[in-house]
Design a protein around this nucleic acid. Sequence first.
DNA 1: CTTCGTGATATGTCTAAACTTATTCATCGA
DNA 2: TCGATGAATAAGTTTAGACATATCACGAAG
Lengths: 236, 236
Amino acid sequence: MTDRPAPLASSKALNIAQEVRRRIIDREWRQGDRIPDEVELAIELGVARATVNKALQLIAEEGLLERRRRAGTHVTVNPVRKAVLSIPVVREQVEQAGRTYSHRVISQRLRPVPAKVAARMDLAPGSQLIHLRTVHLADDAPFQAEDRWPNPAAVPEMLAVDFRRDNANEWLVRNAPYTRADLSFSAENANKRDVLLLDTRPGQALLVLERTTSNDMGAITHVRLAFHPGYSMSAE
Amino acid sequence: MTDRPAPLASSKALNIAQEVRRRIIDREWRQGDRIPDEVELAIELGVARATVNKALQLIAEEGLLERRRRAGTHVTVNPVRKAVLSIPVVREQVEQAGRTYSHRVISQRLRPVPAKVAARMDLAPGSQLIHLRTVHLADDAPFQAEDRWPNPAAVPEMLAVDFRRDNANEWLVRNAPYTRADLSFSAENANKRDVLLLDTRPGQALLVLERTTSNDMGAITHVRLAFHPGYSMSAE
DNA sequence: CTTCGTGATATGTCTAAACTTATTCATCGA
DNA sequence: TCGATGAATAAGTTTAGACATATCACGAAG
């Protein structure tokens, strides 16, 4: 029987990263301190420098370390908290919760964009876009109200699509891939339309996600998603 | 003059990643397709396999590719959108906007935790924690209302700290590093206290961030941050 | 027909070595 | 005193090669 080299719950690089995090958290390396360089750590830990490099880069991405050529690696003084949000497709979100998904298109027609949306999409005010209003349901209860402005200039075929049959989000993901997405979260008091779509009362606080997606050619779509009351979005 | 080997706007690995993204976006590789394996790509692009590996791992993290040993690398069918939120320390957030930061501690005392908070922090109901209420100001206008439950069991010294002088968030970051943070966003209608602290009207929709931080020993603190009306949080 | 190996294969990981590049620091000259 | 210059340094990147490991696919045994 060959003795296995390590328990290997995970990779060497990850073990090193964990050890480095421990030293930072346990104050062996204080905020602002310069830590030993890659060569030293490689020798101390008995691995190749490339492995130490991988581990340190990982932690630097997490924000606990700052690295600069020649200056060395330092423990970040005021680490900015980063949170990764996963924003799944509505349908999957609903189905993953074990509920039945459906959606209803309220309206679909060509309209000039409102100024605010035009600004976000970097379009000339008054441009004609498709305007689409949809409500997404979980077990026939309103889950999310969608107010979308797809840009036919991005994908001309979209003018021929009937979004009553094809889910707009999924059609766009498949037919108009984007390279950039700007999103923002806010809280809004339910307006009349929200009340109607989400079956709630006026003024109810709603979590609102606004997203603008674009590629090199320009904006593809802007969408405002209002979640049902009480919805909360988790991270990390 | 030695002719430089490449324009080298960035590294080879990043250039390869960009090229791979392009092929996915331009539909040269369709959703679900298996793409050429690392060795093939390395030969095609004239680089080492390790470089291709780095590029593909990067894109897999972004969610556009799925990789499994032996099965190969496939283009993700329904990519989950991921967004990275940066959650800066309040003080820096305010100062970065060119405004003057200040804060006022409304109350600080030992109290039994409410059931909801106890559940989040995984504590026995009725445990005694410090309860701290603070309002953060930008140019003397309310910016954020904070409702915090630090756990003295995590760092006993905190019982002796006067948070009127030391910013609680910053004291904790320095003296009680955490390894885990759970956060969630929601929208809430302003309650009476929010109205008072944020100088707004009852029912106003507020963006609320709740965060529980902990380390191996258990929960360190739970905090509810209510932002001033109209505040929005952006990502990517 | 099903189940259980077993080999082939694509990715995962690590290493040692070399080269590149940004940045600091000390030295020297104006 | 100040600024320019250049050497030294630490991280960044790439390479070729090796071995590890998960899993797919196929064939043998039941």
